[in-house]
């Protein structure tokens, strides 16, 4: 599997560290309530198809990326910097 890092270019996936679904970027307000926090921390979709995931270019430029990937075909559809992905 190859991921195109927006900073470093196309790299082998072994340079990257996988964290979780990109949902982790949407941190709720501290007062949002147990349900919202439970959702944020523990509940994840498990689609056969397109997902948005967080990958860290650990042995490269240290950028956190939001990688759009198809879990069926393993195709990497997109990779953008996490710092720019939230908007």
């Amino acid at each position: 599997m190859r991921i195109t890092c927006p900073i470093c270019g196309e790299r082998d996936r072994r340079e990257f560290y996988y964290k979780s679904a990109a949902v982790a970027l949407e941190r709720p307000d501290p007062e949002a309530g147990d349900g919202v926090w439970n959702d944020y921390l523990h509940l994840r979709e498990n689609p056969a198809g397109v997902t948005r995931e967080l990958w860290y270019h650990e042995t490269g430029c240290s950028a956190w990326l939001v990688v759009t990937r198809n879990t069926v075909s393993h195709e990497i559809l997109d990779a953008v910097l996490a710092s720019e992905a939230r908007a």
Partner: peptide
């Protein structure tokens, strides 16, 4: 290190 980078880039850019 990974965590700090995540918090900065992902949550508080």
């Amino acid at each position: 290190m990974r965590h700090l980078e995540f918090v900065h880039q992902g949550l508080r850019p």
